[in-house]
Amino acid sequence: MKGNEAIAEAAIKAGCRYFFGYPITPQNQIPEHMAKRMPEVGGTFLQAESEVAAINMVYGASGAGARVMTSSSSPGISLKQEGISYIACAMLPCVIVNIMRSGPGLGGILPAQADYFQAVKGGGHGDYRLIVYAPASVQEAADCVMEAFEASDYYRVPALILADGMIGQMMEPVEFKPITKRKQPPKDWAATGNDGTKPRAQINSIHIEAEKMSAVCKGLQCVYDKIAAKETQYEEFMMDDADICIVAYGTTSRIVKNAVKKARELGIKAGLIRPITVWPFPSEMIAKATEKCKAFVAVEMSTGQMVEDVRLAVNGAKPVLFVGVTGGMVPTPEMVLEELQDIEEGM
């Protein structure tokens, strides 16, 4: 199954019954699959007139308490940012999928990881965060989508699936596991119609008075702190005795794994920390690794974005290097291996 199809089917399996989107390569198999499946499960698929319309439809459906998803690719996600910021402020859950292509601008359609900043450091305006999952395989993409719906409902924070064109387009076997349900608080905040017997449900993202806005921001921050404490996910690969720690996520991490194996054959003790959530970022784990590792390398399909978070986590304790390709190019294991050999010689 293609990654895009797996993402769409996982959403259906997670109880998503509303999908609003607008076409863009390389994520088109998501709306295609949704268009076929939603009528079969009694849901609604709607191709909106624009990305802006689609995200505001998500805002509405989520405000009414529904499980809802939208998907797009980089330039389309930029268009959705205003809506995402509103949804974050109104504390509504939803899942947004970004199958990244290269940029800036309309860019190219090939895989890239250049929307990292946008995904984890804002994107839209204001003091908010998204829970951001960065799957590295088709199976993990499906698993992350299911988890994203549960986590988003639980915290009332929008979740983002940050994958690239390669994860979206490639085919791998996938097994839809039963969803791990959380004990969800009731959606008593949802605007579902009122017969006059209860207070009006207000879905709101405007707070004119400084005191109120400040309280909202602080409230959000408390939730984000909880998420950071409980939802950080990462994978360690050959880190037990690693001298050089590579940090990479998504497609790049798979390439790095090959490089790590080859490096080990040459006697270079390399390892990988792979963030599965890029926000919250596994900073603690990386900080801990500074005790044993002599150098860190961030590998990305960008000109250097996640590397900043790695530097913050390492906090000057050890050198942090960067290997990146961008614009739709994909790094090769050989390229990463060369960097590892250079570091090894310098140590």
């Binding site: 390569t25 190219g108 359609i109 090939l110 387009q169 490639m170 085919m171 791998e172 076997p173």
Partner: peptide, 10 residues
């Protein structure tokens, strides 16, 4: 274990 990755670009 298998993977299939199509060209979809220019």
């Amino acid at each position: 274990h298998v993977s299939w990755m199509p060209s979809y670009g220019p």
